[in-house]
């Protein structure tokens, strides 16, 4: 099947097998390997991307379902050479160790801040509760998101 998916503001048209998972489409077809894969059961969240500005586990979607949609991956967080506050927050607060969960965590964090620019600790924990991190014990991820909230000059609330 032929699909056209806009990924990080760039349209890609590809011929794909109907059963191809979106996560594999991004990684293997487009070479965007920042999106990871970590389980067979939609539990880990290593594969989280944003589809039309909403976090989605890209292992639960077929590539063909993304036809005509906008996908944002970790590679699209940095804009015009400027890191997203979330990316800066993860560095500032040591929000990552092995880095495997990090892209998914950051994309969920970006969505959270777009919709709730000043989340408290429990709102942050709730937002990332569908994703696993095996390294950080979550503490510094929470602090990283708080840092990003505190260092976003003009919070953009998405429509």
């Amino acid at each position: 099947m032929q699909i056209t998916v806009t990924v990080n503001d760039q349209p890609y048209t590809r011929e794909v097998e109907p059963r191809l998972l979106l996560v594999h489409f991004l990684r293997d077809e487009l070479g965007l390997t920042g999106t990871h894969w970590g389980c067979d059961t939609s539990n880990c969240g290593a594969c989280v991307v944003q589809i039309d500005a909403v976090p989605v586990k890209s292992c639960t979607m077929l590539a063909v379902m993304a036809d005509g949609h906008h996908v944002t991956t970790v590679e699209g967080l940095e804009k015009n050479g400027e890191l997203d506050p979330v990316q800066k927050g993860f560095t500032e607060c040591h929000g990552l160790q092995c880095g495997f969960c990090t892209p998914g965590m950051m994309l969920t964090a970006r969505w959270l801040l777009d919709n709730n620019p000043d989340p408290d600790e429990s709102e942050i924990r709730e937002a990332i509760s569908g994703q696993l991190c095996r390294c950080t014990g979550y503490e510094n991820i929470v602090r990283s998101v708080r840092w990003a909230a505190e260092h976003t000059c003009t919070p953009e609330v998405s429509a």
Binding site: R27, L32, T33, G34, T35, H36, W37, T73, V74, E75, L77, E78, L83, Q87, F90, T91, E92, H94, L96, G99, F100, T102, P103, M106
Partner: peptide, 19 residues
Amino acid sequence: MHRKEDARFIRGRGQYVDD
């Protein structure tokens, strides 16, 4: 001090075996 390795990981530019 901040970690040197973070620069690639926060950009999705780590290189794990499946990459």
